[in-house]
């Protein structure tokens, strides 16, 4: 499984990170080095092993159905780069 420039471009697109053409080969090289290094996990016999679901032995915590938050629009919006009429504002989305 080697990563080529096209794969880096696709992954960067999925991750929404702009990558210039000249950045692709070094990134591909770095990713390949890391992926090559983690290949050693293939030596491990995992056939009978369940994946870890949590580092703690406990049960899922639950909350009651009570309204305990909200009504803080100023706090929600105060760090936003652009707002208008109480909304977040983003470049137009075409559906």
């Amino acid at each position: 499984m080697t990563v080529d420039n096209e794969t880096v471009r696709r992954i960067a697109r999925l991750a929404r990170i702009a990558v210039k053409d000249e950045e692709l080969p070094p990134l591909a090289g770095e990713l390949n080095a890391i992926l090559g290094w983690v290949e050693q996990l293939n030596e491990v016999d995992i056939a009978q092993v369940a994946p870890m679901t949590s580092a703690v032995q406990t049960t899922l915590k639950q909350r009651d159905d009570a309204v305990t938050a909200g009504h803080i629009p100023d706090d929600i919006l105060k760090n936003a780069p652009e707002t208008e009429l109480g909304f977040f504002v983003v470049p137009k989305v075409v559906e």
Partner: peptide
């Protein structure tokens, strides 16, 4: 709501 922007309500 706006010619070039979309508004987001969460």
């Amino acid at each position: 709501q706006h010619p070039s922007m979309s508004y987001v309500d969460l």
